[in-house]
Every structure is written in structure tokens, then in C-alpha cells.
């Protein structure tokens, strides 16, 4: 009997028969990433919780975008593996992987005059083949993605005529139409104003609520605290803290990451940690004075 219990647990946690229907487990094992001869990340073990929003934060050049490139197979690992549902992503054909893992690079660029609907239709590419091109099923999924992102009224508009927030929503709609269990986003709100940022973050939250695993690299620690369920703080290629934002973010962490002092309070409305009184550290001040 004692042997049965863990086996049962494993079965419910990983029903391999229908991988697309379950929230996947994304993880890295001993992952090392490098650009040419420059090692950026070495021997990294990481677990990305399923069905949650994970935010990867850290200062410029800490390796967070490199990590995302490694997770999304854009960058071939020098060592170690990236596991999706327990399988090394390098052992999966890229088209199969595209059915499980969607990817949104930083500030993607749509060709002139491409409409929102046309962009979203690209999300069906991994599911289509030369024998099965455009099906009513594809149309239904594209319509759903447009609906979910509130873009149905703008479907025939050119992407480059939209506002920044709408444009980012259109790209996310494309990723939704890909119907993957996991979505990786590289700085989805960079270059957006506050209103458009909230628009995008709330969409991301609703996607996680519908069961998707979201991993995003973002610059803004305050937004990470506000919208992420899980926080990964990176510094010089290493993960120096991870966990619930409320438990992970401390003035000490902020000092190590960004070299600034701050005070932390709990947001009385959302309960998220809130950084206040952000200022340069005394060291930095002394450094600039001399």
C-alpha cells in the first residue's frame, strides 16, 4: 500500500497521455548557456511552477533574457537540459515543441499592413500541415483568441496602426492561438505606458488563471511583485532568490540586485510587496562623491 500512494500521485501529476491538456512542468537541470565563448549561465537548476505566472527579474545583463532564450530553444545549451513535461526539449522536433511552448520575443515587429487576424492565424502554423491547411477548427480557435484578448472589433485593422497595448495583445493572441500549455514572454511590457502595461499584465494573469504556465522576463520589480505568483531573481547568471514575491523580495535582495536602498511595505489593497523610498546606497553615493 505504501508503494501505491506515490505512484498514484505521479500518475495524477503527469498524465502523459494528454500532455497538452495539463499544465506542464518546466525545469532546467544543470543548464549552462553561453554566447560564443562568454558563459552567461552555468549549471542552473530551476523549477517553473505549472499554471502560474513566473517573473524573472534582475539587473541589465544578469542573464535573464539569455535564460529565456535557453528555455525557448533559441539558444542551444552548452550543457545541461531544459525539461518540458520531463522531456528534454532538444529531443523534440521544433514543430512538436511549438504545440507545447509558445514564445513571444521582445518587441516583435509585424510587417506593414499585416492585419490582426492575419497575425493571429500564424499561431495555427504548428498545427497545420500541407495535408491539413486551414480548417473550421483553426478559425474557431483564432476567433477565440481574438475574443479572449478583446481584439475581435480590431481584427481587420493593420497591426502597426494599433496602440502599443493593443499591438502586444495581438501578439499574445497569436501565442494563444498556438494552444500551448506554456507561454514564454520576453519583456512583454517594455516600451508601453502604464495603462498599456496594466492591459497586458491583466491579460497575462487571466491566461494563467485559465491554466497556462507563464514565464516572463520583466524589468520592473514592482510589477513583478504585483502580477507574478512566483519570482526568480537573477544576478550575474545565478538565481539568488526565488519564491512567492511577498516572501522573496527584501531590502537586502533589492540592494544586491540593483544596488539601491529601499523600504518595503505591504500594499494595503493587493497585499503585494511595495517598494518605497528607493534611493542609491551609501556606497554608491560615496563612490560618486569621490
Amino acid at each position: 500500500m505504501t508503494h501505491d500512494a506515490p505512484a498514484c500521485e505521479r500518475d495524477t501529476a503527469q498524465p502523459d497521455t494528454a500532455p497538452d491538456m495539463t499544465a506542464p512542468d518546466m525545469a532546467t537541470q544543470g543548464l549552462s548557456l553561453a554566447y560564443g565563448s562568454v558563459a552567461v549561465i552555468e549549471d542552473l537548476d530551476l523549477q517553473l511552477p505549472a499554471g502560474q505566472v513566473t517573473a524573472i527579474v534582475g539587473p541589465n545583463g544578469c542573464g535573464k533574457s539569455t535564460l529565456l532564450a535557453g528555455l525557448s530553444r533559441l539558444l542551444k545549451p552548452r550543457g545541461g537540459t531544459v525539461l518540458l513535461n520531463g522531456t528534454d526539449i532538444r529531443h523534440q522536433p521544433t514543430r512538436q515543441l511549438a504545440k507545447r511552448l509558445a514564445l513571444l520575443p521582445q518587441q516583435p515587429h509585424a510587417p506593414e499592413a499585416l492585419t490582426v487576424a492575419e497575425l493571429v492565424r500564424f499561431g495555427r502554423h504548428p498545427h497545420q500541415s500541407w495535408l491539413r491547411q486551414w480548417s473550421p477548427e483553426d478559425k474557431r480557435i483564432v476567433d477565440e483568441a481574438l475574443d479572449m484578448t478583446g481584439l475581435t472589433p480590431l481584427a481587420q485593422r493593420p497591426v502597426d496602426a494599433l496602440s502599443g497595448g493593443q499591438r502586444q495583445r495581438a501578439w499574445i493572441a497569436m501565442a494563444i492561438a498556438q494552444q500551448t500549455a506554456t507561454l514564454l514572454l520576453d519583456e512583454p511590457t517594455s516600451a508601453l505606458d502604464l495603462g498599456h502595461q496594466v492591459e497586458v499584465y491583466e491579460l497575462i494573469q487571466s491566461l494563467a488563471a485559465s491554466g497556462k504556465t507563464i514565464v516572463m522576463v520583466i524589468h520592473d520589480l514592482v510589477s513583478a511583485c504585483r502580477y507574478a505568483d512566483h519570482l526568480i531573481a537573477m544576478h550575474q547568471g545565478h538565481v539568488i532568490a526565488e519564491g512567492l514575491p511577498g516572501e522573496t523580495v527584501t531590502p537586502e535582495l533589492v540592494r544586491r540586485l540593483y544596488g539601491v536602498e529601499c523600504s518595503l511595505i505591504t500594499d494595503p489593497v493587493t497585499g503585494a510587496p511595495l517598494l518605497t523610498n528607493i534611493r542609491r546606497t551609501r556606497d554608491a553615493l560615496d563612490g560618486s562623491a569621490t
Binding site: S72, R73, L74, T94, R95, Q96, L97, A98, K99, L101, A102, L103, L104, P105, P108, H109, A110, P111, L114, L119, F122, G123, H125, P126, Q128, W130, A175, Q178
Partner: peptide, 23 residues
């Protein structure tokens, strides 16, 4: 004929095309 679709995806950028399962 075979290349038209992947090429259209490449117009969205190399990384997006890889994300959509193209080579």
C-alpha cells in the same frame, strides 16, 4: 509552394518563426 508558409512566418522575425515551429 512548400516554402511560402514558412517564409511568411519568417517575415515576423526569426525568433517568432522558430517559436511557430519553423526552421
Amino acid at each position: 509552394i512548400l516554402l511560402a508558409r514558412p517564409l511568411a512566418a519568417l517575415a515576423l522575425g526569426e525568433h517568432v518563426a522558430i517559436g511557430l515551429g519553423h526552421h
